[in-house]
């Protein structure tokens, strides 16, 4: 519903632009669905690995977009959930619990619990405070992981066995794993679309636009925002569990604060508060990173200024450009 409201306000020519946006989205989803076919035919395993990574980080970006794009909560600590989800899988695997039926729910629950505590503390503040506090708590988790000597400390921990699902799905099959990530991503996007179009989601979006007014008409916005924050954390924790299975490795680096920055970049690049924006943003960002690191020894020398230009000029990211750049 919010998406259709937006279109109404874009004005003349919006139909064509909406079509362009929809076509790009469909094309991206279709291409992503066909990647394993291409890589099987050409035997290019690296490409499948790269795109699996795109899908997993896109799940993280979709989750961040739920609170940041729709809820206006700029979290700079979202990589912490990737880490918590990943460490849940890694620690359980090391302790001999290999079943995904246990590992993944633990990953999701641990992330949700962390989100509940951090959210309860940080949602009492707003604006820059919120950005810095989420960053600081994520840094705390990062240091905790470094302190976990039993689980590799700074060096990280190799996971020798991917999560098992009693023969239902075999994660060791790269194609199966790719489609599993794809399914989780699409389910995540569907979940977000259901949330933002529900009464709950409208309250969240109302709180972003004018929190005082929402409170004045009787909504306890703090509770709504906290629940939203926890849902996003749980979803990103699941992405962390996937990431640990993808790399067969966990380390504090997966929740380094620049990873949180990367997730923010993906969301803004793709289009804040749009359903498929985070996916497009993750795709463009990771391919850009990959491409630049092949072209030059100093990729960030170009990536940095690109981000600066996006921040200064590109209102609404790629989705915004396709739709006519209304959002600011």
């Amino acid at each position: 519903m919010s998406a259709s409201l937006e279109q109404d306000t874009i004005g003349a020519g919006s139909d064509a632009r909406w079509m362009a946006s929809a076509l790009v989205t469909i094309a991206v989803v279709a291409v992503l669905g066909l990647v394993p076919l291409y890589t099987t035919l050409t035997g290019n395993a690296f490409l499948l690995t790269l795109f699996t990574r795109v899908l997993i980080l896109a799940i993280g970006a979709v989750s961040l977009n739920l609170i940041m794009g729709y809820g206006g909560m700029v979290s700079f600590g979202h990589a912490a959930y990737l880490g918590i989800g990943g460490y849940a899988v890694g620690i359980l695997a090391k302790e001999g619990v290999g079943s995904g039926y246990i590992q993944w729910p633990v990953a999701v629950a641990a992330s949700a619990l962390y989100a509940l505590v951090v959210g309860a503390l940080s949602l009492r503040t707003r604006g820059v405070y919120f950005i810095m506090i989420t960053l600081a708590f994520a840094q705390m988790i990062y240091y905790v992981a470094i302190g976990l000597d039993r689980y590799g400390g700074d060096d990280g921990l190799t996971i020798y066995q991917r999560s098992t699902f009693g023969g239902v799905v075999d994660l060791n099959n790269k194609t199966v794993f790719y489609y599993l990530c794809f399914a989780v991503l699409l389910a995540g996007i569907y979940l977000v679309s259901r949330i933002v179009n529900s009464r709950f989601g409208l309250v969240i979006q109302g709180a972003r636009a004018n929190e005082r007014r929402m409170r004045a008409i009787g909504f306890p916005t703090f509770r709504y925002k906290l629940v939203c924050f926890v849902i996003a954390g749980a979803l990103c924790g699941l992405a962390g569990a996937l990431l640990a299975n993808h790399t067969n490795f966990i380390s504090p680096a997966m929740m380094h604060w620049t990873r949180s920055g990367d997730l923010i970049v993906m969301v803004v690049l793709g289009g804040l508060g749009t359903l498929f924006g985070p996916l497009i943003g993750a795709l463009v960002f990771l391919l850009l990173e990959e491409g630049l690191s092949r072209l030059t020894e100093y990729p960030d020398l170009f990536l940095g200024p690109i981000l600066l230009l996006v921040a200064i000029y590109a209102h609404g990211g790629i989705e915004g450009l396709l739709r006519g750049g209304r959002r600011g």
């Binding site: 940041m68 700029v74 700079f76 604006g127 820059v128 950005i131 620049t258 920055g261 923010i264 970049v265 803004v268 804040l272 100093y298 990729p299 960030d300 020398l301 990536l303 940095g304 200024p305 690109i306 981000l307 600066l308 996006v310 921040a311 200064i312 600011g328």
Partner: peptide, 24 residues
């Protein structure tokens, strides 16, 4: 150029600067 922008844009822009400076 970032003063008038949202805090989110400022985070994004200065994050880009940080990457640039490290690489430079």
């Amino acid at each position: 150029r970032l003063y008038e922008r949202s805090h989110l844009d400022q985070v994004l822009g200065t994050f880009g600067l940080l990457l640039f400076f490290n690489e430079a």
